[in-house]
Design a protein around this nucleic acid. Structure first.
Lengths: 153, 153
DNA sequence: CATTTTGTTTAGTAATTTATAAACAAAATG
DNA sequence: CATTTTGTTTATAAATTACTAAACAAAATG
């Protein structure tokens, strides 16, 4: 058994969890992520997570898998310890935005399909679609550049 | 009664709906949004939406309200027509990103709170938090500039 | 001002998602 | 190789969300 979390830690987890839930991530995934941002040591074992966050073994198994798939955390082995440990990945947040940028690209493609669709029907009211396509084309070009600029700074 | 949608239109709505649902928006909101991107005329009445998308009156009422709150569509009155009409707002997608940029700012603030929390505990493992804070500070500064650059282009 | 049309709200159902307990599998230890 | 520890999967319960029908309210028409 580990010592229970301090109130300041609970408060931080709650605040960050609330914000991260807005992105659609399940509550427990957000709690794990938030705790991993402030825990010491920086890595936590399976049972550390179960005890500190008072969540089930199954939730830890499922939500850590989800967070790993998203590229936000990673599994590590600690010398001499049997249990898997988890920690926040380096540059996790940068990687996340890079993945999300794919969505921008997809919306650019979809808006182009819309333009083509109206063209085939000799419909000229393409302003909505042109606006959308122009903006997402801009972002598809600029976002990777912005991220690169950050990485090289 | 209006003429039923063409298959190409149905396909477009389905594709864009699928992509937009990834953002957590309800299915019917996505369908309305997608249809409003390609319909002619560009504005659609309450019953146009009901008939064309085969959805309930209540869904139209609730989901158009949601889309208006998000700033993606607007209500308009058509001269001589009793029914409310809806259409995509100008620069809807630019406005949407501007709102989402608030989230970046919030995460910057939260990561700063985490840094302060660890400092108060004389805990020096703040790399995770410093990385997050540095990146979201960068984005809080750069995203508004990027959007401005788009607007003035 | 009674009637019809238009739109919102309420109440209930259906469907999905979240979280867990329990069963199971795999791996490490003695 | 039997036992314990560790982690995953399955089945289910709980909670939330999405959607609609029906009741209701408001506004326009004749």
């Amino acid at each position: 058994m580990s010592t229970p979390l301090e109130q300041t830690e609970i408060d931080f987890i709650e605040e960050m969890t609330l914000k991260m839930e807005e992105t659609g991530l399940p509550r427990i995934a957000c709690q794990i992520l938030s705790w991993l941002m402030i825990c010491s040591p920086v890595h936590q074992s399976f049972s550390d997570l179960i005890e500190n966050l008072e969540i089930s073994k199954a939730s830890v198994s499922n939500m850590t898998r989800l967070l790993m798939q998203m590229g936000l955390i990673e599994k590590i082995r600690i010398h001499g310890e049997r249990q898997i440990h988890f920690q926040i990945k380096n540059q996790a947040w940068v990687d996340l935005l890079e993945i999300q940028t794919q969505q921008v690209f997809d919306l650019m493609k979809i808006s182009q399909k819309g333009i083509d669709l109206l063209a085939n029907k000799d419909e000229f009211n393409t302003l909505r679609l042109e606006e959308m396509n122009k903006f997402y084309s801009f972002l598809s070009e600029e976002m990777p550049q912005l991220i690169d600029r950050y990485k090289n700074s």
